[in-house]
Amino acid sequence: MAKYAMLVDAGRCTGCGACRIACQMQWQLPPEIAYNRLEHREKGTYPKVKWETTPVQCQHCDNPPCLHVCPTGATYKRSDGIVLIDHKKCIGCKYCMVACPYGARTLDHEKMVPEKCRFCADYVVKGQQPPCVSTCMNEVRVFGDVEDPSSKISQLLAGESVYQLLPERGTQPRIYYVKR
């Protein structure tokens, strides 16, 4: 059984936004709905200053707060690790939006469902890469099956020192970030 995960090397990101719009095209989203975003930070003071950009999206937590709070079980987790939303069960209470510590949810105003990154579930099972991964000129993201020891992500995870976002929340995210 595959277990999907993503490795993000935020240090390579230059904030061009290609991942956002490639995803929007893939899922044919309206312009204002984005499943991923960039967090910009300035560290230091002029002229000794660093500009850091970190891509953030649904972390596909193994202990997802959004799933625990969903009253009808519309949010569910697949055995391959991907957290998805069953639209027909969603009542639109937005509790998941309030509960997600990553701010990963965004309300689809047409469907009235709090949407989020899907790890391109329909496509990755066919061996395709999510477009946020494949379109990136800086190769910030690596996506793959961590159960497969020969996958690029398995090899990188074995070699790189990584961290997760807000580990203290106990969410156990499936997105890892390269430590620099």
Partner: peptide, 26 residues
């Protein structure tokens, strides 16, 4: 009125999530 999809509320009965405080609230 706040709920985006109130007609789906019947899933509260057919697909209850007991860990959800909103389910208990309802």
């Amino acid at each position: 009125l706040e709920l985006g999809r109130p007609l789906n509320m019947f899933w509260l009965i057919f697909s209850p999530n007991l860990s959800s405080a909103i389910w208990w609230m309802g």
